[in-house]
Design a protein around this nucleic acid. Structure first.
Lengths: 176, 176
DNA sequence: TGGTTTATGTCAGCCATGTTGACTTAATTT
DNA sequence: AAATTAAGTCAACATGGCTGACATAAACCA
């Protein structure tokens, strides 16, 4: 696909067209730019580049499954629901709402389709029978795995190319 | 915000509720699961966890600017456009279309607003006067930096927590 | 020169997926 | 028995993708 090369092209543009040539004067004015660099971390330009890479990564990462989903009449929202039900089998609807950070109504729309079409099953909670625990059906599990496959391949390739990793933890969730 | 802790909770659930306990039988059936692991890479379970982390990362990464954008009556689409115009000042409309992977009409809607409200300027190309080169205005640059700030902080925190990095290249764009 | 292609802009409408607000039902808690 | 909670649903609306059609100006080409 051409878009991947386009991404490369523009990521490379970063070097050809260094953003801090313009940015430096402004950083002096606003002054909060270098705050992040305290402790000898990466310069702001590199962090900006990283942000850009994250955009491209996510765009491409979701691109493969999106194409598969289209054949099923589903969208990315269905993927997210199916993924978490598959990976955290038996979770409650309320759990899913918190994970996805969307409203009950938004979730309801896609969840109903997945249930009606036999990808997800519900089961009343044993302790609290108000709760609807969600489980993937065999069909649901199969689709979830099919959607995950290209992403797994992409990640494996990326991590392999990144070289042997030291043991590291992800700090994305530490509040800035 | 509570959602960040929720994310942690569910990422941790991965360990409490190992997905391969159920997944293993299926992997034997489908057989393509371990393909990614050739070459001594991470096991599929870890890659799945990584995929999940990428979802949470992107969700939280875009959350901060989204809140700021709402005050301006803008959305995430405006952010993306403004970001790339700011970082790659002088790019053509066609370039932006390829970067963002959206249609001319979708871009047009948000670009028009950004131009009308004085965040982006256009200038006919010197060599080819059909081209409209895009530049941020001072106002546009200021907003772009304000939107980038929380993301920079997040990234700096994440990378710092990840520890001193060996020189590594991002292989997200290498086709699987 | 005149016809074709290219870069951009625009109108109109559709679809997916997010939002609020109001309300129901069933089950649990007080 | 009353209040709270988990879930489901209806209606209306906003954002930001999409397609298709078409207009304009500039560049290119024969």
């Amino acid at each position: 696909m051409a878009d991947i090369n386009q991404a490369k092209k523009y990521v490379n543009m970063t070097d050809l067209n260094p953003p801090l040539a313009r940015g430096k004067a402004a950083d002096a004015k606003h002054g909060d730019g270098s705050r992040a660099a305290k402790g000898g971390a990466l310069p702001e330009a590199k962090l900006q580049e990283f942000a850009e890479l994250l955009f491209f990564a996510y765009r491409d990462f979701t691109g493969d499954p999106d194409a598969i989903l289209a054949d099923f009449g589903f969208g990315r929202a269905h993927h997210r629901v199916l993924h978490f039900v598959n990976r955290h089998s038996g979770l409650r609807v309320a759990d899913l709402l918190e994970i996805l950070n969307i409203t009950k109504q938004s979730l309801g729309r896609v969840l109903k389709q997945l249930i009606d079409q036999g990808y997800i099953m519900q089961q009343a909670g044993a302790a609290d029978r108000r709760e609807r625990l969600l489980f993937p059906t065999e069909r649901g599990r199969a689709l979830a795995e099919r959607l995950a496959a290209p992403q797994i391949v992409r990640l494996a390739a990326a991590l392999e190319a990144a070289g042997p990793a030291p043991r590291r933890r992800c700090a994305f969730f530490s509040k800035p």
